[in-house]
Design a protein around this nucleic acid. Structure first.
Lengths: 253, 253
DNA sequence: CTCGTCCTGTCCATAATATGGACAAGAACG
DNA sequence: CGTTCTTGTCCATATTATGGACAGGACGAG
């Protein structure tokens, strides 16, 4: 059903945009876009510069990196709603945050990426704040991504991981490692990253499925590793599992 | 400098997106997109459906209209900053709103469109609320658009108005009428619409220029016509002119 | 029912468009 | 001064997007 053709250029432009989105405010150098998309230099160059002329992409004066331009939020204003998920998850995040005390994230799946859409800071004095709302990463490199992959049929997960192969390099991981983590998560019942993306942190994620059984999001706790020993890992995971089910109820019914 | 080529399809896709953005949540029927963009049916159809596959556009179950999809806000999350203008204009809007009592709008120019980016509701019991944050219209059909056109060099304004010709029809106006209003606004010092887009309303807009002298935005008061007689029009215009200058200072320095 | 008038969706030969190999040029480093 | 990073450009080529023509569906009037 997917392959509607006659629009290669548009699809490529969108692929570029998604890579740029992952670069957030800082932007992404052209070479990185080329690597991540697998397109050729002239093609990426052309696309990026047309998008600049159209105001969809901006180029940073300083370092020449490319980033999402201000016309994108302008287009987004056409869509005023906060998602159902965000509303449904709010009480759960509130509750879990109070209970756990460490930083909580709500992450959705969008295409082959995870996107952080909400964050709650806990009361414990050391908080992992590196991941911000808007942070976007290839599915598989964060515990949330691993959890989401673990919750979908294995073949589909493998396909996504394969599609992200070129981008894993930048996160110092690879297809085999990710697939191993996904299998482990499937067995455990939740996603885990002993070595967080930030040095010395650990993350636990549980998936949230839509009524049709497809994983749409994950809730994650990140903390300094010493705060998440085996015993506490168990406790935290149970809370996250409970709240994930609660959120599923809220979006399902 | 503009005409970088080799990307017709991407530009066309963006043109389609901007039209869809003007349709907001309700969306736009395909035929309207065809009219507004001047593209052919198969082209628009193909573009729209590829964008649907990519999650950039959604189709409403009910009426088959096309609207901006949820991936657009997701991309926009990559850009967390509220614009300087919004911050700079805040105190002025606050003050003017208290002083005037009718609904105030802050509208920016984006390409050939105006886009409402802020709204303040006044204290007077009858408020014109039809225009919401995110509302997007061809430059020229609202008093804000007229004001912005009036503040730019006449040839540029004419070019924009000509480019929007096909879209005016839907707003029951035309090139000649708009150009007349722009000339009148240039003479007056502010934009005016005796017959607002909503029946029985009247709007007054003043333009805001960036330090380089190009108009970037407008502040607008909309009220039921009877509340904006000649005397009060004068008063309101003076407040708006004063605040426009204040905002220019704030973004200039 | 039939005709007319709106709409959306599809086919495919064709021309125009986007492509990418090869090259150029600049910056940072030793 | 060479080496290894970048980013940017040219242009012959074939792949890609194009749009005229057609089909089908929904609605209303006669």
């Amino acid at each position: 059903m997917e392959p509607r053709q006659g629009a290669q250029a548009i699809r490529r432009a969108l692929a570029v945009l998604r890579i740029l989105a992952a670069g957030r405010e800082d932007g992404v150098p052209l070479a990185e876009v080329i690597r991540a998309t697998g397109l050729t230099r002239p093609t990426v160059h052309r696309i990026v510069h047309v998008l600049i002329e159209e105001g969809i992409v901006e180029r940073h004066e300083r370092n020449g990196r490319y980033a999402i331009g201000n016309q994108v939020p302008e287009l987004a204003l056409a869509r005023p709603r906060p998602t159902r998920l965000l509303i449904a998850a709010n009480p759960s995040l509130q509750r879990a945050s109070a209970e756990i005390g460490d930083t909580l994230f709500l992450t959705v799946r969008t295409g082959n990426d995870t996107l952080c859409v909400d964050r709650r800071i806990g009361i414990y004095p050391i908080q992992v704040l590196s991941i911000e709302v808007g942070a976007r990463r290839p599915l598989g490199v964060s515990s949330a991504g691993v959890a989401i992959l673990a919750a979908m049929p294995a073949p589909e997960a493998r396909k996504i991981v394969a599609a992200n192969e070129k981008r894993f390099e930048a996160y110092k991981t690879d297809v085999a490692t990710v697939l191993g983590e996904v299998t482990a998560a499937r067995r455990l019942g939740y996603g885990l990253r002993e070595i967080g993306l930030v040095q010395g942190t650990k993350s636990i994620s549980t998936w949230i499925k839509t009524p049709d059984g497809r994983p749409a999001a994950a809730i994650t706790v990140s903390a300094v590793r010493t705060r998440l020993g085996p015993r506490r890992e168990q406790e935290v995971a149970e809370i996250l599992l409970r709240e994930a089910r609660t959120i599923e109820q809220a979006i399902g019914g």
